[in-house]
Amino acid sequence: MEERQPQWDATQERILDAADALIARRGVRGVTIAELARRAELSRPTIYRSWSDADDVVRASLLRRVARILATFPASPGSRSELVDDVLRFISLFREDPLYAHLLADEPEAFTRYTLERVGSSQRLILTWLAAAIGAAQDDGSVRKGVPDEIAVMLLLIAQSAVLSHGTVSDLIPETAWERELRAALDGLLRP
């Protein structure tokens, strides 16, 4: 399940910056190779050297955003409580990210397509991070025994479901209670 931090060169970063701007302004359907080329001031063949189509660029754009969020977590947590804190912090940063917030609020079908219909590179990167964190917390004895990769999958499912359903239940449960109950669910999954 190992997924390494992606690396992009300066030209690819420029293209991904253009994709971010287009997604924010027009949504994912507004991202075309022609628009990317125009906004990035590059030729279409330059874009096609790195990606096969606009959908691939959107996926790379979303992966870059996840990688940037994960980069704010420099060390693996040493305990279950630190791991739960990190997952909740990741969720908060994810929900605050302007592009992901836009997709969740205005294009939930696109969010679903890019994050839930298949396990893509963004999810694999998150799973790699979670599995390493789970393994470190298992060494501490505060996380139950089990295969870290398998526990990571369930942790990701719980977190994704909570993020995707947040808007649906926001009238039923206050934010503080939502976070408290999500913390309890995550902690319960990991508890020995």
Score class of each variant (00 low, 15 high):
residue 118 R to K: 12
residue 98 P to G: 05
residue 87 V to N: 03
residue 95 R to Q: 11
residue 121 S to R: 12
residue 114 Y to H: 15
residue 100 Y to C: 01
residue 115 T to G: 10
residue 94 F to S: 07
residue 105 A to Y: 06
residue 103 L to F: 11
residue 108 P to Y: 00
residue 113 R to I: 09
residue 111 F to R: 01
residue 112 T to C: 14
residue 122 S to R: 06
residue 103 L to T: 09
residue 121 S to V: 00
residue 99 L to P: 06
residue 109 E to A: 10
residue 102 H to Y: 10
residue 100 Y to F: 15
residue 103 L to G: 06
residue 116 L to S: 12
residue 93 L to T: 04
residue 122 S to L: 03
residue 121 S to C: 04
residue 120 G to P: 07
residue 121 S to M: 03
residue 110 A to Q: 10
residue 123 Q to E: 04
residue 94 F to P: 05
residue 110 A to V: 04
residue 88 L to C: 06
residue 98 P to M: 00
residue 117 E to A: 11
residue 120 G to K: 02
residue 116 L to C: 12
residue 112 T to W: 13
residue 94 F to Y: 15
residue 95 R to E: 11
residue 88 L to R: 02
residue 122 S to D: 08
residue 102 H to P: 03
residue 107 E to L: 05
residue 118 R to Y: 03
residue 106 D to F: 15
residue 120 G to D: 13
residue 97 D to Y: 07
residue 119 V to W: 02
residue 105 A to Q: 13
residue 90 F to D: 10
residue 98 P to H: 07
residue 108 P to Q: 08
residue 102 H to R: 13
residue 108 P to N: 07
residue 113 R to A: 15
residue 119 V to A: 13
residue 88 L to P: 02
residue 113 R to Q: 14
residue 115 T to P: 06
residue 95 R to H: 01
residue 120 G to Y: 08
residue 87 V to Q: 05
residue 95 R to D: 10
residue 95 R to C: 07
residue 111 F to D: 09
residue 119 V to F: 04
residue 121 S to Q: 11
residue 96 E to P: 02
residue 91 I to F: 02
residue 92 S to Y: 00
residue 98 P to C: 01
residue 123 Q to I: 00
residue 109 E to G: 08
residue 97 D to T: 01
residue 118 R to L: 01
residue 110 A to C: 08
residue 121 S to E: 15
residue 115 T to N: 15
residue 102 H to N: 11
residue 107 E to N: 06
residue 88 L to A: 04
residue 108 P to R: 05
residue 122 S to H: 07
residue 115 T to H: 14
residue 99 L to W: 04
residue 101 A to D: 12
residue 110 A to M: 11
residue 106 D to P: 03
residue 101 A to S: 10
residue 114 Y to S: 14
residue 122 S to M: 07
residue 107 E to F: 10
residue 105 A to C: 05
residue 93 L to E: 09
residue 89 R to C: 02
residue 117 E to H: 12
residue 118 R to T: 10
residue 89 R to Q: 03
residue 111 F to A: 11
residue 87 V to A: 07
residue 111 F to Q: 07
residue 114 Y to R: 09
residue 109 E to Q: 04
residue 94 F to Q: 06
residue 110 A to L: 10
residue 90 F to H: 07
residue 110 A to P: 08
residue 103 L to Q: 11
residue 118 R to A: 14
residue 102 H to L: 13
residue 109 E to N: 05
residue 119 V to H: 03
residue 87 V to S: 04
residue 93 L to C: 04
residue 93 L to N: 03
residue 94 F to H: 13
residue 105 A to H: 11
residue 96 E to Q: 10
residue 115 T to V: 11
residue 115 T to S: 15
residue 94 F to T: 01
residue 91 I to V: 13
